[in-house]
Simulated scan of single mutants.
Amino acid sequence: MLERHAELLHAFSRHLGAERGRSQHTRRAYLGDIRHLLAFAGEQGIQQIDELRIGDLRSWLGAQADAGAARATIARRAASARTFLRWAEHTGRIAADPSLRLVAPKRQAHLPEVLRQGEATALLDLAAVRADDDDPIHVRDRAMLELLYASGIRVGELAALDIDDVDRSQDVVRVMGKGSKERIVPFGAPARRAIEAWLAVRPRLVGEHSGPALFLGRRGRRVDTRQVRSAVHELLSHLPDAPDLGPHGLRHSAATHLLEGGADLRMVQEILGHASLATTQIYTHVSVDRLRRSYEQAHPRA
């Protein structure tokens, strides 16, 4: 069934990119979910997508739940199926959308794990000490971590930055976020100094395929998100009391520390590039949760 629908999947991918502005990573996730659905349908003897019914979709989600899939995974796949089948109906590929009454389990609201302010400082101090050696990768890692924590941008946004996206005269960075929405995000003097130090040694890694990329790998190509994650995990491994977070943990930490410092919630929403204020509000819960833990540890009658 998957081979027969290769052209359909390609058309859906074009729709996600050209009409909905979804990133390559998001398109890959959508297509993976739809391939999973089509494979399941084929096992049930369903040969064409216009044969899918609401019961088939529910059976698909139920099979995943029985196999132990996380609630978040099931919810995401249900959302992918709804997007795909709505598109198929609008383009005349099916007569009616069978997913209209499809209900997936709600995602469990987990508070994101974050660094304490002292832990964030220790991490960046360690990165600065490492950057004092003669390895340009260590200078790059310091600049990446400083910018991630200072701006709260996503790891994919960081990897996509070009040199001209950073305005060191105003200490702001131009970021292309989700849905191809551009935003301007400020950063502080420590991040500017780290970026300037990196730009001074960047020519040592420049190669044929470097182009305008701000951050480069050891072979001269644009840094990828895996390299950024590796740098964050490796440096955090030297702080045994700190949680093992990835780049997104630095984003969570930046947002939490901004709110703890008195920043307005809507300002944090703008910095993070959240479409909905409700998404940003989780950080108010993180701050209250941290406050409660500190109170319980410190107050004799907590």
Rank of each mutant, 00 (worst) to 15 (best):
L8N: 00
A11I: 05
F12V: 11
R20M: 13
G32T: 02
D33I: 03
R35N: 09
L38M: 15
A41Y: 02
G42Q: 12
E43L: 10
G45V: 09
Q47T: 12
R53K: 14
R53T: 14
L57T: 05
G62C: 00
Q64C: 00
G68T: 03
R71P: 07
A81C: 14
A81Q: 03
R82Q: 15
T91D: 11
T91N: 12
G92K: 06
R93L: 12
I94R: 05
S99W: 09
V103I: 14
P105H: 07
R107I: 07
P112V: 06
P112D: 04
R116G: 11
Q117I: 13
G118D: 14
A120K: 01
A120D: 02
L124G: 05
A128R: 12
D135H: 04
V139R: 13
R142W: 02
L145Y: 03
A150N: 04
A150L: 03
L158K: 01
A159C: 15
I163W: 01
D165G: 09
V166W: 03
R168Q: 15
S169L: 11
V172N: 00
G177W: 09
G177R: 08
G177F: 06
E182F: 05
P190H: 05
R193E: 15
E196Q: 08
R204M: 12
R204T: 12
L205F: 10
P212H: 09
A213N: 07
H233V: 13
L236W: 00
S237Q: 12
D241F: 00
P243A: 05
P243D: 03
D244I: 07
G249M: 01
L250A: 08
H252P: 01
H252T: 04
A254K: 09
L258E: 02
L259E: 02
L259V: 01
D264A: 03
R266F: 05
M267C: 08
V268H: 06
Q269D: 09
A278I: 10
S287I: 11
L291N: 04
